[in-house]
Amino acid sequence: MIVADEKSLPEILDMIKDCNHILVLGCKGCVTVCNVGGLKEVQILASALRIGRKKDGRIVKVDEEILERQCDPEYVAQIKDRVQNYDGVVSLACGVGPQFLSEAYPDQHFFPAVNTKFFGGAVAHGIWEERCAGCGNCIIHNFDGLCPIARCSKSLMNGPCGGSSNGKCEIDKEILCIWDSIVRKKMASGQLNDLLKVMPIKDWRTARDGGPRKRIKEDLTK
Protein backbone atom coordinates (compact mmCIF):
# COMPACT_ATOMS: atom_id res chain seq x y z
CA MET A 1 0.00 0.00 0.00
CA ILE A 2 0.91 3.65 -0.15
CA VAL A 3 2.24 4.83 3.20
CA ALA A 4 1.92 8.46 4.23
CA ASP A 5 2.78 10.58 7.24
CA GLU A 6 1.07 13.56 8.89
CA LYS A 7 2.08 17.07 7.98
CA SER A 8 2.63 19.35 10.95
CA LEU A 9 -0.34 21.31 12.25
CA PRO A 10 1.34 24.74 11.76
CA GLU A 11 1.96 23.85 8.11
CA ILE A 12 -1.68 22.93 7.54
CA LEU A 13 -2.87 26.01 9.49
CA ASP A 14 -0.72 28.14 7.24
CA MET A 15 -2.21 26.53 4.11
CA ILE A 16 -5.77 27.34 5.24
CA LYS A 17 -5.01 30.77 6.71
CA ASP A 18 -7.29 32.55 4.22
CA CYS A 19 -10.20 30.10 4.66
CA ASN A 20 -13.15 30.52 6.99
CA HIS A 21 -15.02 27.36 6.07
CA ILE A 22 -13.22 24.18 5.14
CA LEU A 23 -13.85 20.50 4.57
CA VAL A 24 -11.44 17.91 5.98
CA LEU A 25 -11.72 14.96 3.65
CA GLY A 26 -10.40 11.50 4.50
CA CYS A 27 -9.95 8.40 2.38
CA LYS A 28 -10.83 4.80 3.24
CA GLY A 29 -7.96 3.42 1.15
CA CYS A 30 -4.30 3.04 2.04
CA VAL A 31 -4.19 6.07 4.35
CA THR A 32 -6.87 4.53 6.57
CA VAL A 33 -4.84 1.33 6.81
CA CYS A 34 -1.68 3.23 7.72
CA ASN A 35 -3.54 5.34 10.29
CA VAL A 36 -3.02 8.74 8.76
CA GLY A 37 -6.10 9.61 6.74
CA GLY A 38 -9.05 7.57 8.00
CA LEU A 39 -12.18 8.75 9.80
CA LYS A 40 -10.45 8.95 13.16
CA GLU A 41 -7.65 11.10 11.76
CA VAL A 42 -10.21 13.30 9.96
CA GLN A 43 -11.89 13.99 13.30
CA ILE A 44 -8.61 14.64 15.11
CA LEU A 45 -7.31 17.01 12.44
CA ALA A 46 -10.64 18.86 12.24
CA SER A 47 -10.59 19.43 16.00
CA ALA A 48 -6.96 20.50 15.96
CA LEU A 49 -7.64 23.02 13.20
CA ARG A 50 -10.64 24.46 15.07
CA ILE A 51 -8.61 24.79 18.27
CA GLY A 52 -5.59 26.18 16.44
CA ARG A 53 -7.61 28.87 14.73
CA LYS A 54 -9.57 29.67 17.89
CA LYS A 55 -6.28 30.29 19.70
CA ASP A 56 -5.42 32.62 16.87
CA GLY A 57 -8.68 34.49 17.37
CA ARG A 58 -9.98 33.54 13.93
CA ILE A 59 -12.69 30.91 14.10
CA VAL A 60 -12.82 28.44 11.22
CA LYS A 61 -15.83 26.28 10.44
CA VAL A 62 -14.66 22.74 9.72
CA ASP A 63 -16.82 19.98 8.23
CA GLU A 64 -15.67 16.35 8.22
CA GLU A 65 -16.17 13.68 5.60
CA ILE A 66 -14.54 10.55 4.26
CA LEU A 67 -14.69 9.03 0.77
CA GLU A 68 -14.37 5.38 -0.14
CA ARG A 69 -11.32 6.35 -2.22
CA GLN A 70 -10.04 9.68 -3.47
CA CYS A 71 -8.23 8.06 -6.40
CA ASP A 72 -11.42 7.19 -8.24
CA PRO A 73 -13.61 9.70 -10.11
CA GLU A 74 -16.71 7.77 -9.13
CA TYR A 75 -16.16 8.45 -5.42
CA VAL A 76 -14.71 11.94 -5.97
CA ALA A 77 -18.03 12.80 -7.67
CA GLN A 78 -19.87 12.18 -4.41
CA ILE A 79 -19.01 15.65 -3.06
CA LYS A 80 -20.06 17.43 -6.27
CA ASP A 81 -23.14 19.12 -4.75
CA ARG A 82 -21.30 20.66 -1.78
CA VAL A 83 -17.66 21.10 -2.68
CA GLN A 84 -18.20 24.74 -3.74
CA ASN A 85 -19.57 25.60 -0.27
CA TYR A 86 -16.02 25.66 1.10
CA ASP A 87 -13.16 28.12 0.92
CA GLY A 88 -10.84 25.14 0.75
CA VAL A 89 -10.67 21.34 1.14
CA VAL A 90 -7.98 19.63 3.20
CA SER A 91 -7.31 16.15 1.86
CA LEU A 92 -5.93 13.40 4.05
CA ALA A 93 -5.42 11.07 1.09
CA CYS A 94 -2.06 10.29 -0.48
CA GLY A 95 -0.78 12.67 -3.17
CA VAL A 96 -3.18 11.13 -5.66
CA GLY A 97 -6.31 12.30 -3.80
CA PRO A 98 -5.90 16.09 -3.92
CA GLN A 99 -4.94 15.79 -7.60
CA PHE A 100 -8.04 13.83 -8.58
CA LEU A 101 -10.05 16.39 -6.60
CA SER A 102 -8.29 19.33 -8.27
CA GLU A 103 -8.91 17.83 -11.70
CA ALA A 104 -12.60 17.20 -10.92
CA TYR A 105 -13.20 20.62 -9.34
CA PRO A 106 -10.86 23.13 -10.98
CA ASP A 107 -12.33 26.11 -9.15
CA GLN A 108 -11.74 24.76 -5.66
CA HIS A 109 -8.54 24.84 -3.56
CA PHE A 110 -7.27 21.49 -2.27
CA PHE A 111 -4.58 21.25 0.39
CA PRO A 112 -2.54 18.11 1.18
CA ALA A 113 -2.54 17.27 4.88
CA VAL A 114 -0.17 14.31 4.57
CA ASN A 115 3.23 13.63 3.03
CA THR A 116 3.14 10.57 0.79
CA LYS A 117 6.20 8.52 1.56
CA PHE A 118 6.48 5.10 -0.07
CA PHE A 119 5.01 1.75 -1.12
CA GLY A 120 5.32 -0.53 1.86
CA GLY A 121 3.62 -2.22 4.74
CA ALA A 122 3.44 -2.48 8.52
CA VAL A 123 6.26 -4.54 10.02
CA ALA A 124 4.97 -4.01 13.55
CA HIS A 125 2.11 -2.08 15.12
CA GLY A 126 2.75 1.57 14.24
CA ILE A 127 5.86 0.90 12.14
CA TRP A 128 5.81 0.91 8.34
CA GLU A 129 8.68 0.19 6.00
CA GLU A 130 9.36 0.68 2.30
CA ARG A 131 9.40 -2.39 0.10
CA CYS A 132 8.84 -1.30 -3.50
CA ALA A 133 10.22 1.50 -5.65
CA GLY A 134 7.63 1.07 -8.40
CA CYS A 135 10.31 0.63 -11.06
CA GLY A 136 7.82 -0.96 -13.41
CA ASN A 137 9.77 -4.15 -14.07
CA CYS A 138 9.91 -6.46 -11.07
CA ILE A 139 13.10 -8.49 -10.69
CA ILE A 140 12.88 -9.61 -7.06
CA HIS A 141 12.83 -13.29 -8.01
CA ASN A 142 16.58 -12.87 -8.72
CA PHE A 143 17.16 -11.85 -5.13
CA ASP A 144 15.10 -14.37 -3.18
CA GLY A 145 12.15 -12.03 -3.08
CA LEU A 146 14.00 -9.05 -1.60
CA CYS A 147 14.28 -5.85 -3.62
CA PRO A 148 17.66 -4.12 -3.80
CA ILE A 149 16.25 -1.30 -5.95
CA ALA A 150 13.92 -0.15 -3.19
CA ARG A 151 15.83 -1.34 -0.16
CA CYS A 152 19.52 -0.78 -0.86
CA SER A 153 20.34 2.91 -0.30
CA LYS A 154 22.35 2.86 -3.53
CA SER A 155 20.00 0.50 -5.43
CA LEU A 156 22.99 -1.77 -6.09
CA MET A 157 22.29 -4.78 -8.26
CA ASN A 158 25.41 -6.86 -7.69
CA GLY A 159 25.99 -7.26 -4.00
CA PRO A 160 26.68 -5.22 -0.88
CA CYS A 161 28.89 -2.13 -1.05
CA GLY A 162 31.89 -1.69 1.20
CA GLY A 163 29.81 0.02 3.87
CA SER A 164 27.75 -3.00 4.90
CA SER A 165 28.41 -3.61 8.57
CA ASN A 166 26.84 -6.19 10.89
CA GLY A 167 23.83 -6.52 8.64
CA LYS A 168 23.18 -2.79 8.67
CA CYS A 169 23.44 -0.08 6.00
CA GLU A 170 26.26 2.43 6.17
CA ILE A 171 23.89 5.37 6.09
CA ASP A 172 21.96 4.45 9.25
CA LYS A 173 22.33 1.69 11.83
CA GLU A 174 18.52 1.41 11.89
CA ILE A 175 18.40 0.45 8.21
CA LEU A 176 18.87 -3.16 7.23
CA CYS A 177 21.52 -3.86 4.60
CA ILE A 178 19.23 -5.74 2.26
CA TRP A 179 22.22 -7.18 0.42
CA ASP A 180 23.41 -8.76 3.64
CA SER A 181 19.98 -10.40 3.94
CA ILE A 182 19.98 -11.51 0.29
CA VAL A 183 23.48 -13.02 0.53
CA ARG A 184 22.76 -14.81 3.80
CA LYS A 185 19.49 -16.21 2.47
CA LYS A 186 21.23 -17.51 -0.66
CA MET A 187 24.10 -18.98 1.37
CA ALA A 188 21.72 -20.72 3.76
CA SER A 189 19.90 -22.35 0.85
CA GLY A 190 23.15 -23.28 -0.91
CA GLN A 191 22.29 -21.08 -3.90
CA LEU A 192 25.04 -18.48 -3.70
CA ASN A 193 25.88 -19.22 -7.34
CA ASP A 194 22.73 -17.31 -8.28
CA LEU A 195 24.45 -14.13 -7.15
CA LEU A 196 27.69 -14.65 -9.05
CA LYS A 197 26.53 -13.51 -12.46
CA VAL A 198 26.78 -9.81 -13.24
CA MET A 199 23.27 -8.39 -13.40
CA PRO A 200 22.47 -6.59 -16.65
CA ILE A 201 22.15 -2.82 -16.61
CA LYS A 202 18.56 -1.90 -15.89
CA ASP A 203 16.24 -0.22 -18.35
CA TRP A 204 14.65 2.59 -16.31
CA ARG A 205 12.10 3.54 -18.95
CA THR A 206 9.50 1.53 -17.06
CA ALA A 207 10.16 3.61 -13.95
CA ARG A 208 9.38 7.29 -13.38
CA ASP A 209 12.54 8.08 -15.39
CA GLY A 210 10.60 7.26 -18.55
CA GLY A 211 8.16 10.08 -17.82
CA PRO A 212 4.74 9.99 -16.11
CA ARG A 213 3.29 6.55 -16.50
CA LYS A 214 -0.06 5.22 -17.58
CA ARG A 215 -1.58 1.77 -17.52
CA ILE A 216 -4.19 0.73 -20.05
CA LYS A 217 -6.11 -2.51 -19.72
CA GLU A 218 -7.62 -2.77 -23.17
CA ASP A 219 -10.57 -5.02 -22.34
CA LEU A 220 -11.82 -2.57 -19.75
CA THR A 221 -11.64 0.43 -22.04
CA LYS A 222 -14.06 -0.95 -24.62
Partner: peptide, 12 residues
Protein backbone atom coordinates in the same frame (compact mmCIF):
# COMPACT_ATOMS: atom_id res chain seq x y z
CA UNK B 1 32.83 -5.20 5.08
CA UNK B 2 30.08 -7.71 5.75
CA UNK B 3 29.19 -10.37 4.90
CA UNK B 4 32.86 -11.41 4.88
CA UNK B 5 32.15 -14.73 3.16
CA UNK B 6 30.75 -12.93 0.12
CA UNK B 7 33.56 -10.43 -0.32
CA UNK B 8 35.81 -12.64 -2.37
CA UNK B 9 32.89 -13.48 -4.67
CA UNK B 10 32.14 -9.80 -5.12
CA UNK B 11 35.77 -9.35 -6.13
CA UNK B 12 35.38 -12.26 -8.56
Amino acid sequence: ADPFEFRVYRLA
